[in-house]
Design a protein around this nucleic acid. Structure first.
Lengths: 339, 339
DNA sequence: TTGAAAGCGGTACCAC
DNA sequence: GTGGTACCGCTTTCAA
């Protein structure tokens, strides 16, 4: 833990010159700069975090609130935490993790102690209590997800409605006239902000094409996933020639398994498209077409906005929706000729 | 972001009195203390984090290094991150998350900038590069997991060998003479530190009882888990009357499914015991006996040790193994009479 | 029981 | 292009 004055002495310059040379905030003679950098490297010098926060009015820390509730889908959430952390490092920022009840209380604490320069909000609920908090604290806050009441907030998210619509577009173009939708368990539609948006996108686009459609939201009924199996049977027997999936990877696997059990080939008999998946849909047999949710896309934008806010640049409040992309893998095809 | 001097003025005392009253580091007249606390509450005062770090030589932050590799099992890792964060909050500590390559570079950075008072290491590999780092940096470090070379380190972990042995004990007592073991994919035995320990505990205890035993480490072969299914068939047809599982929850579900498909009842025909699970084994049908891995147990101990190190109290290096507990749920019974 | 003031280790303004 | 130094807001010694 070398200190700046040791570096200064080693380089034969003043403290302020070291500070400026290392921060690049004012021009330094090439030779001087070289000596300073060398000394700093030799001593493994890094500015003391506390001192920097105090003097520089910058903590270089983002607080990330992610409730990590017991019932949350771990892999997806972890992907967002990871993506945020990577994006933050690009700006030399570290991430302080606020979990559980601390996701809220911690936000308040971090704000009034000046521990973080900005707050990033993950796993946003429709009626998220962090919305009110964000409005009260003086620390810039960016939501990754869109709460119902987002007046005056800065929000970033995949355009889930467009994503579902995109999936419907592809299937309609292939000639499908009857679509099935398998969603998350019903509870997810209260707890999270995006499942309703996917469902809405599916329904509205299907309606606009005049397609038949059916939606099933199977309960999370234990590892056997009988709900999902039943959903597949019902939809297929109900005449659906294509399935749009917005559910976890386990449900995907089970759905495909059930299709196989019903002796329906993908995509010859039934087309399958996944919407909003954070996992790799090519791992399935067969690989599944996807309109994915890409954590890095949302998180990078969120971090960029946070940085702008920290830098005092003007950022207008509002929802930034990221345009979805369709990634085909061969799991959709024209419907079989009507029998 | 009220400052201490505003609180002092509001309470009609000096700055130092406020500091002492709030930290409790010296006796304060009850009346004075009351006025100070009230003023602090009214102003929503919290000491500035940077100033506190600088003056107090304490950051109140633990760095948590967790590589979060793409191939890691998210739910289990998330459980540890969460448990650590909760344990840390008990001591008024926050958690700074270091992921990916940053798990190593970040450790160095955090150490030499004095951003954290201690480092907690998760997802420990047998030949973890963070071991060497831990020895070089001056910041106290605690491993949650046991690397091969742990000379001089402070490590905390479940006693995985004892956990597996405990499972074997129970089955042996019931009269089982032939046990099957289904483990993680082979790669996990290189990457993580504990799978080999579970396997060793199983084998050694089985041998000490003179039991027949067979170990299968099914590949992670996609969502269909044919490897797991095959493993179950092989073991059961090979004569095993009980299965010890040390694998993810999906593999548990598949194994039970396969037993059902083979028409073997649990526990009448085959007993099943899970070792080292972080998930809820009562969610299966039937509920499965478990010798669980409890994240909070490891993390709380690790945090306690970290606090002792931070406080300068003597902590002797070495591995602390947490004794396993067996939680029966009715999935083991005496083997069926030999046919 | 309380207060004054010297740091903690940087940043950035003001001079030169 | 470089150096001196006044803060940043708190903790803690020293004095009273």
């Amino acid at each position: 833990m070398a200190k700046i004055h040791e570096v200064a002495k080693a380089a034969g310059v003043s403290i302020s010159t070291v500070s400026y040379a290392l921060s690049g905030k004012r021009p330094i003679a090439p030779d001087t700069r070289r000596r300073i950098e060398e000394a700093a490297r030799e001593l493994d010098y890094r500015p003391n975090a506390g001192a920097r926060m105090l003097a520089g009015r910058r903590t270089q820390i983002f607080a990330l609130t992610e409730p990590f509730r017991a019932d949350t889908h771990a892999p997806a959430h972890m992907a967002f935490v990871l993506a945020t952390s990577i994006a933050a490092r690009r700006y030399e920022y570290d991430v302080l993790l606020l979990t559980e009840e601390e996701a809220s209380a911690g936000m308040r604490r971090v704000a009034s102690s000046g521990l973080a320069d900005a707050v990033l909000v993950l796993d946003v609920a429709p009626d998220d209590e962090r919305v009110a908090l964000a409005r009260r604290i003086s620390v810039p806050t960016v939501f990754i997800g869109v709460p119902d009441d987002h007046e005056g907030l800065v929000c970033v998210d995949l355009d889930f409605e467009a994503a579902a619509a995109l999936a419907v577009d592809g299937l309609a173009e292939l000639g499908h006239r009857s679509l099935g939708f398998i969603g998350h368990p019903p509870a997810a539609y209260e707890r999270s902000n995006f499942p309703p948006r996917v469902r809405r996108g599916f329904e509205q686009r299907a309606d606009s094409f005049g397609l038949e459609r059916a939606v099933v939201l199977p309960e999370a009924d234990g590892p056997r996933r009988t709900g999902v199996r039943q959903a597949v049977r019902d939809l297929v027997e109900g005449g659906a020639t294509a399935l749009v999936l917005h559910c976890d990877d386990g449900a995907h696997a089970v759905a495909l398994d059930e299709l196989a059990a019903l002796d329906r080939r993908v995509p010859e008999d039934v087309s399958v498209v996944s919407v909003g998946a954070t996992f790799d849909t090519t791992a399935f047999v067969p690989p599944i077409d996807s309109v994915p949710l890409v954590p890095s896309a949302s998180c990078e934008l969120a971090v960029e906005l946070a940085m702008r806010l920290v830098d005092g640049e003007p950022v207008e409040a509002g929802v930034r929706l990221i345009a979805p992309t369709s990634v085909p893998h061969g799991s959709s095809a024209p419907p079989p000729p009507a029998s």
